[in-house]
């Protein structure tokens, strides 16, 4: 039992990171059908936002710098996302395979930009002092506060996104556009605006996830790349079409990871988890919690 708690905690911690990184992707992928391979770079933008804040306000972390970092990361990634949607993505809505290529190109450009601006070495972003400590549950078990913070934050973000998409008028408009574009346009919704907003919103969420990742260690131009495939797997394992699937996918992959790592190396664990996901997808190609739809293609 004593061993079980740290495993579960680790699992929840990994799940919450996966969930934070996947949620924006899931919205863009699920609602717009656009595959954003630059999603990882928006996470990277988030990471660097907290670094920028520390450059301006000094490297001493506090709750204020954290708050500012969150705000900056959302604004930056939302803004850049908006720009990219206007320039590139909006021309590719009916061409999912092409959107993969174009966003891959964008991701390469953003990585090189980061290398030119911040250098290719990793940088550290500060966080509030208290978060680097931990909660000593027993003598052997200490749960780091930063991980607890991330878990709580992930729950908060989920609730916010759920509320926003399903309960507010603006969210309903987005849903309407994604479900029936031409009908939405007929009743006077500006679908182009809705597209741009959805994409940028997804990017903004990635930026926020970036802050959380920067709390766990140093970050660099390729930080986003380390997360992108896992993130995609979470989304397709869960099934396209809603928050429910993404949460399910993140929890499954996240919680099983530390248990598998327990009896093998971490690289083998990764191989095993990826293979398990593929096996599940073989039996459920639409993911675990797909949205039923009448159209087949």
């Amino acid at each position: 039992m004593g061993d079980f708690i740290p495993f579960l905690f680790n699992g929840l911690s990994i799940s919450s990171i996966l969930l934070l990184t996947a949620i924006g992707l899931s919205i863009v992928f699920g609602m717009m059908g656009v595959i954003n391979f630059a999603h990882g770079e928006f996470i990277m933008i988030g990471c660097y936002s907290s670094y920028i804040v520390s450059l301006v306000l000094g490297s001493e972390g506090s709750w204020l710098t954290l708050l500012l970092a969150f705000i900056l990361s959302f604004i930056l990634s939302f803004g850049i996302g908006y720009l990219i949607e206007r320039l590139v993505i909006r021309k590719l809505y009916a061409r999912p395979l092409d959107s993969i290529l174009a966003t891959w190109g964008i991701s390469l450009i953003l990585q090189q930009l980061a290398r030119n601006i911040f250098g290719s070495n990793n940088v550290d972003a500060p966080m509030p002092k208290i978060l680097s400590k931990g909660w000593e549950v027993t003598e052997d078990i200490t749960l780091p506060f930063n991980r607890i913070f991330i878990i709580l934050f992930a729950v908060l973000v989920c609730l916010f996104v759920y509320y926003f998409i399903y309960k507010t008028p603006k969210g309903r408009i987005l849903q309407a556009v994604m479900q029936n574009r031409s009908m939405a346009s007929c009743i006077g919704i500006n679908t182009k605006k809705a597209d741009a907003f959805t994409f940028s919103f997804g990017c903004g969420l990635a930026g926020i996830a970036g802050i959380c990742i920067s709390m766990l260690g140093s970050v660099g131009p390729s930080t986003g790349q380390n997360y992108i495939i896992d993130t995609f797997l979470v989304v397709i394992l869960g099934g396209i079409g809603g928050l429910r699937g993404t949460i399910l996918g993140a929890l499954l992959i996240g919680i099983s990871s530390p248990f598998i790592e327990n009896f093998t190396t971490s690289s083998m664990a990764k191989v095993i988890i990826l293979s398990l996901v593929l096996i599940v997808l073989h039996y459920k190609p639409q993911g675990l919690s797909p949205m039923k739809d009448r159209t087949i293609d």
């Binding site: 595959i35 395979l97 993969i100 495939i229 690289s267 083998m268 990826l274 593929l278 997808l281 073989h282």
Partner: peptide, 26 residues
């Protein structure tokens, strides 16, 4: 056979390549 197509296949093909390369490095 299970009907995976389009972008799903593309993403999974990446994941498989990642698996093999982790194995080879390891």
């Amino acid at each position: 056979k299970s009907g995976t197509k389009g972008v799903y296949f593309t993403i999974i093909s990446q994941a498989i390549t990642l698996i093999v390369s982790i194995l080879f490095v390891g």
